[in-house]
Design a protein around this nucleic acid. Structure first.
Length: 551
RNA sequence: UGGGUUAUUGUGUAAAGGUAGCACUACAGAUUUUGAUUCUGUCUGUCUUGGUUCGAAUCCAGGUAACCCAACCA
């Protein structure tokens, strides 16, 4: 028996459409506005749209919803394309709503000819006032009854640049007392004497979202136009235009957007974090942007798996950050090369090991034997992690303490004989003896140890700056807290270790490589690295059972 | 005081009138030259009140709660 994976509600709709021959094949689109960087919430929409088309043998267009020239820039177009490609998706066509400005203009004219659109000279305030409120009906504007001829002339003049910004708008003539505010004669064209990133100065009137989106879907013969819940009220308008214009009937379906704990997702808030210097740009590894996750060391597969696991439904959700981290570790655990690094060093001297001697020891690169091995230098003076020694050991302490034995990973078992403190009372050096017959790989010592720690030969270790990232916010849902969301920023979201020790093998790595610094977490090279100074980012920690016990 | 949408364990998500399942988290144990991984196990749930039915998360009626809608933004 093959186990049947249950379908999400959109898949059910698609399968029903396909089965009933409602459509021969499906076509979806991902329609970002190029006014900012993509974030993890967008990846849910990307995986959904591209994933659905792939599953049912359809197509997916990338369409930039660029109907507002004042907020949109080519820089964003480029970053969006890069992010989608990085996630591993290929679009069928790269399109722009601005490609359809001529069509859209013709549609507007058609509505005017049908008596379904009119030019309104009212100010923005007057229009808002007459629109009513959700609980009070709207009233018609004095310009609502203009003749078709007059509307045609006026709209043509709007297009020809006769009027200034805000002087006139084109409105659909629907119903001023409709319970859906969006149906109360929505504005469909406004005047903006602004430079557009693609059409330059060709136009001074631009269609509104509602007049562009559905028709663009229709022109592209998109069968399933998938968007987020807040567009539910727009669906009625979306269908109204398609019906009145009698064009290809694309259908809109809505799903709940992704929310995640310990971060914010709104473009407005992310922009504030960047502009007000709380983070260092859109690709700061603490940002929930795709570029931020990429720089932090996340893999495309981990994000795709995450989007698969969170599911698709219509109820509000708040996904645990831990699920994303689980998907990340799941991937990295099998792909990341194991290496050693000491972030907070303390010196360990092996008193019975020849001070002039260096040994090349063999270490496995990963759990999969196919990843091979490498050699690492060993000598009598090592760096180990300060937290791996306790002068007075706690209960269940497996690591180093006076008189205790531990294994040095890939090397020998050592016994702590004594230690020294500096003037501040901090431990400066630990003295050990080693068991020559306990060498990793052919241990004949018969000694069993509870703990294994990582180390680096002091004479051979290279150095690097290491950046440790923690969650950006102290609270699960900063947007739901009283007061400014920025007051909940975690002050320790970034810890910089200016000089940590790393294996000499790490001096030649590139940006795409992923590492597990054994016992410390997953790391990758940061783009700030120079030949003089390497910089590593911590992608995510390892799960830490001991840390919980110690607390 | 309007309209729309949604309610299943701590978090997500299944169950299309018939055993409330799966994943994450948490906790416990086994294995481990990473206190990682892996493996095993445990915990907690159908918003509420009625009704229909042999049987209801599911159907019906009434409550309640949350979210969205009054940009010339998308």
């Amino acid at each position: 028996m093959s186990e049947e994976k249950s379908l999400n509600f959109i898949e059910e709709i698609i399968e029903a459409d396909l089965a009933s021959n409602n459509c021969a094949s499906i076509s979806t689109r991902f329609p970002p506005e190029p006014n900012g960087y993509l974030h993890i919430g967008h990846s849910k929409a990307i995986c959904l749209n591209f994933g659905l088309a792939a599953k049912y043998g359809g197509t997916t267009n990338l369409r930039f919803d660029d109907t507002n020239p004042v907020t949109e820039e080519t820089e964003y177009v480029e970053s969006i394309k890069e992010d989608i490609k990085w996630l591993g998706f290929n679009w069928t066509n790269e399109l722009y709503a601005s490609d359809y400005f001529d069509n859209l203009y013709a549609f507007a004219l058609e509505l005017i000819e049908k008596g379904l659109a009119y030019v309104d000279d009212s100010t923005s305030e007057e229009i808002a006032l007459l629109k009513g409120t959700p609980t009070e009906p709207g009233k018609p504007s004095e310009f609502r009854s203009r003749s078709i001829e007059e509307n045609r002339t006026l709209f043509t003049e709007m297009k020809n640049g006769v009027y200034k910004d805000g002087e006139k708008v084109l409105r659909a003539k629907i119903d001023m007392v409709h319970t859906n505010m969006l149906m109360r004669d929505p504005i469909i064209y406004r005047i903006k004497h602004a430079h557009h990133h693609r059409t330059a100065n060709k136009w001074c009137i631009y269609p509104m979202y509602d007049f562009a989106h559905g028709q663009s879907d229709s022109i592209e013969k998109i069968t399933h136009s998938i968007c987020t819940l807040e567009f539910i009220p727009h669906r009625e308008l979306y269908e109204w235009f398609i019906e009145k214009l009698n064009i290809f009937p694309s259908r809109q379906y809505e799903f709940a957007r992704l929310n995640m704990t310990y971060t914010v997702m709104s473009k407005r808030k992310l922009l504030q974090l960047v502009n007000e210097g709380y983070v260092n740009g859109w690709d700061d590894p603490r940002m929930p942007t795709i570029s931020g996750f990429r720089r932090k060391g996340y893999t495309p597969l981990s994000i795709r798996n995450f989007c698969e696991k969170i599911g698709v439904a219509r109820r509000e959700n708040m996904i645990d950050l831990s699920l994303l981290e689980f998907c990340l570790r799941e991937d990295l655990n099998v792909t990341a090369k194991r290496v050693m690094a000491v972030l907070d060093p303390i010196k360990l001297v092996i008193t019975n090991y020849d001070a002039d001697k260096t040994e090349e020891l063999t270490a496995e690169n990963g759990p999969d034997e196919a990843m091979g091995t490498r050699t690492i230098p060993f000598s009598n003076t090592l760096w180990i992690e300060r937290e791996d020694f306790m002068e007075v050991p706690a209960k269940k302490w497996f690591r180093l303490a006076p008189g205790s034995v531990v294994r040095l990973k890939n090397a020998y078992i050592v016994k702590c004989e004594s230690f020294e403190k500096n003037d501040n009372g901090d431990i400066s050096t630990i003295y050990c003896t080693y068991y020559p017959e306990s060498k990793s790989g052919n241990d004949t010592s018969g000694i069993s140890v509870k703990g294994t720690i990582h180390w680096l030969s002091a004479a051979h270790a290279a150095t690097a700056e290491i950046r440790l990232y923690d969650r950006l916010f102290k609270v699960e849902n900063p947007s739901a807290e009283e007061g400014d969301f920025k007051s909940f920023i975690n002050p320790d979201s970034l810890t910089i270790i200016p000089k940590a020790y790393i294996e000499p093998s790490l001096t030649k790595v590139d940006l795409e490589e992923r590492f597990q610094f054994i016992r410390k977490g997953y790391f990758c090279l940061d783009k700030d690295s120079t030949p003089e100074k390497m910089v590593f980012n911590r992608t995510v920690t390892l799960k830490d059972t001991w840390g919980k016990i110690a607390d």
